[in-house]
């Protein structure tokens, strides 16, 4: 499979990365080189093989469903580019 310019622009939109016409053209070539490289996986017979879901065979660790942390609103927003009274500020979303 390979991608065309339109697909690259669509994927960039999905990934929320602004691309110029020039970027998209360059990326088309690069992505096709990588997709060409991974193409060889199609020759592997995977019948009867499941996908890997856990790297180390172990049961998922669980803990009691209780509050162990919190009351750190100021810490949470400390690194944000724009905040007001411990809220993240973003451009208007709803008119």
């Amino acid at each position: 499979m390979s991608v065309d310019l339109q697909t690259v622009k669509r994927v960039a939109r999905l990934a929320r990365i602004a691309v110029s016409e020039e970027d998209a053209e360059r990326m088309t070539g690069e992505l096709n080189a990588i997709l060409g490289f991974v193409e060889q996986l199609n020759e592997v017979d995977v019948s009867g093989v499941g996908p890997m879901t856990s790297v180390t065979p172990m049961e998922m660790k669980k803990r009691q469903d209780v509050v162990t942390d919190g009351n750190k609103a100021a810490d949470i927003v400390a690194n944000a580019p724009a905040t007001e009274e411990n809220f993240f500020l973003v451009p208007k979303v709803v008119e």
Partner: peptide, 12 residues
């Protein structure tokens, strides 16, 4: 075609 196939190959 891609992700699932790759995760199966990973098991192999």
């Amino acid at each position: 075609a891609y992700y699932l196939q790759a995760q199966k190959v990973r098991n192999l």
